[in-house]
Design a protein around this nucleic acid. Structure first.
Length: 468
RNA sequence: UCCCCGAUAGCUCAAUUGGUAGAGCGAGCGGCUGUUAACCGCUAGGUCGUAGGUUCGAGCCCUACUCGGGGAGCCA
């Protein structure tokens, strides 16, 4: 079948040309004038194509009159200028072939608005809705824009493992990967599970980050990035957390924290610019139906500089804000959501890159700064905060000095032997390097205005939810 | 995991001080129409999340549980 996609038919195919399209019926309107309007969508674009089916088609009474939302059809016909308002062209059908009916009394996608909560229970059919079609297309474009961005800058795309033995990275609870019998795992003499008998002869997990494993490629081949699934077994129940999500993690060689922040800012701007220019139809929908400020917000960010602010100064701003904080602000404690939101949404009204956090609240691999005038210890960390979503990127310059790194591992009570290969990078030809992690779904949320992260990934995995 | 709110028709919700259920949309049928959030009329459809309890009587009050939403923590 030589199928023309609806996107092409609506924008490129010349009037008068014969084409064949395939799609799913969105709405049908029958006219007693002796024909029917069939709106078809095939996912290639937001818009539907209007098919005109005359009553003299052989299967008009048998098939077309009983078409309902969700039916799949293949239509062959000639593209003509539309006589009605609302579309430039329409398809005058020469043949309408019904491939699959969809019982209107049972089809879960009614011809009406549904709540996102309901649609989550129909995750296999929700991509047929306007919203989820648009989310899927924007998500796709964001991913390709990310690859574009790094490929244009000669970053190497590196695949880090999904299964890993790296533990204790401070990134949260991990999922175990095992082939041992859950009901009766083998035990050692002291009663603990004997992982020697497990598939990998040791305890393994689903990765919480590809960073540790991508650093060796950075320290051998230069600028690199990973882009893959990431898993956190935290019992997080929020509109911003998933147990399985996708993360982009670039790692730059011969790079410090400033360079790290530069790449983060440029990358986000590239993504937003691309979405605005290439997903205009989908973005217009989000702007109209989901969040009336998304386009304006993205445009504003593309055209302005991100605020860069050391943690210490952020704390001073928050202390002087004259606000009654639910959680007290003070040097040495991590910033709370309310503090981050104040900075990015109220005080600066722009994305903010916070840097140089206290060492005590950050993981071992972040580079230790010179103590400040008051002797306080910070590390070269950065968080990129955006309105509504909060932390969209977290990153740092890495500790490249072996003695300092090992000192930090001791402070964090880590088993240094487990990280011998990570330390080797500092032992042989060490270099300054830096990187960050971008939560893909948070980025999709920010671009589309979708309020819940479960609605920007096809099949959300959250506590108590792994259907489909 | 903690705090707050919710669960009634296929979907979204309503039901005054406890007196055994209604609407809109959707669906079916009919009418009208170059229609496009179509419009008009009629019809069908509900053991009120689960399990207990209070009461002459519970959708409504009490307890536990399950699931969902919002906020918080954890973070991307």
């Amino acid at each position: 079948m030589n199928r023309t996609k609806i996107k092409q038919a609506l924008t490129q195919t010349p009037v008068g040309q014969d084409i064949t399209i395939g799609g799913w019926v969105r709405t049908v309107r029958h006219s007693k004038g002796g024909f029917s309007f069939i709106s078809l969508n095939d996912g290639s674009c937001f818009a539907q194509i209007q098919v005109i089916a005359d009553k003299d088609l052989p299967n008009y009474e048998s098939d077309i009159v009983s078409l309902t939302a969700g039916c799949s059809v293949v239509v062959t016909g000639v593209l003509v200028e539309s006589q009605g308002k609302g579309q430039r062209v329409e398809l005058q059908a020469g043949e309408v072939r019904l491939l699959g009916a969809a019982d209107a009394e049972k089809y879960p996608m009614q011809q009406k608005r549904h709540t996102f909560e309901y649609l989550r229970t129909q995750a296999h059919l929700r991509p047929r809705t306007n919203t989820f079609g648009a989310v899927a297309r924007v998500r796709n474009r964001i991913c390709s824009a990310i690859h574009e961005f790094f490929q244009q800058r000669d970053f190497l795309y590196v695949h880090t493992p999904i299964i890993t033995a790296s533990d204790c990275e401070g990134a949260g609870e991990m999922f175990n990967v095992t082939t041992l019998e859950a009901a009766a795992p083998p035990k050692t003499d002291d009663g603990t599970i004997d992982y020697d008998q497990d598939f990998f002869s040791r305890q393994t997990f689903l990765t919480v980050s590809g960073q540790l494993e991508v650093e060796p490629y950075c320290c051998s081949l230069g600028d690199v990035y990973t882009f893959g699934p990431t898993f956190r077994a935290e019992n997080s129940n929020t509109p911003r957390h998933l147990a399985e999500f996708w993360m982009v993690e670039p790692e730059m060689a011969f790079c410090d924290l400033q360079g790290d922040a530069d790449v983060a800012e440029e990358m986000l701007k590239h993504i937003f610019k691309t979405v605005l220019s290439d997903c205009d139809e989908d973005m217009a929908f989000f702007n109209q139906r989901i969040d009336k400020t998304v386009i304006e917000t993205l445009q504003h960010i593309v055209n302005s500089d991100f605020v860069r602010l050391p943690y210490t100064e952020a704390v001073e701003i928050l202390e002087k804000a004259g606000k009654q904080w639910e959680y007290p602000v003070g040097w040495g404690t991590d910033l709370q959501t309310e503090h981050e939101r104040y900075l990015t949404e109220e005080h600066f009204k722009s994305p903010v890159i916070l840097t140089d956090y206290p060492a005590s609240i950050k993981p071992f691999y972040m580079r230790v700064n010179e103590p400040d005038a008051d002797g306080r210890q910070t590390v070269a960390a950065m968080d990129v905060l955006v309105p509504k979503i909060g932390e969209i990127i977290g990153g740092a310059q890495r500790e490249e000095r072996l003695d300092v790194l090992e000192g930090r591992m001791d402070e964090c009570d880590m088993n240094k032997d487990d990280y011998w290969w990570y330390a080797d990078l500092r032992r042989y030809g060490t270099i300054p390097h830096a990187g960050f992690g971008l939560g893909l779904e948070r980025c999709v949320q920010f671009c589309t205005g979708m309020a819940n992260i479960r609605d920007v990934i096809p099949y959300p995995r959250t506590p108590r939810n792994a259907d489909f």
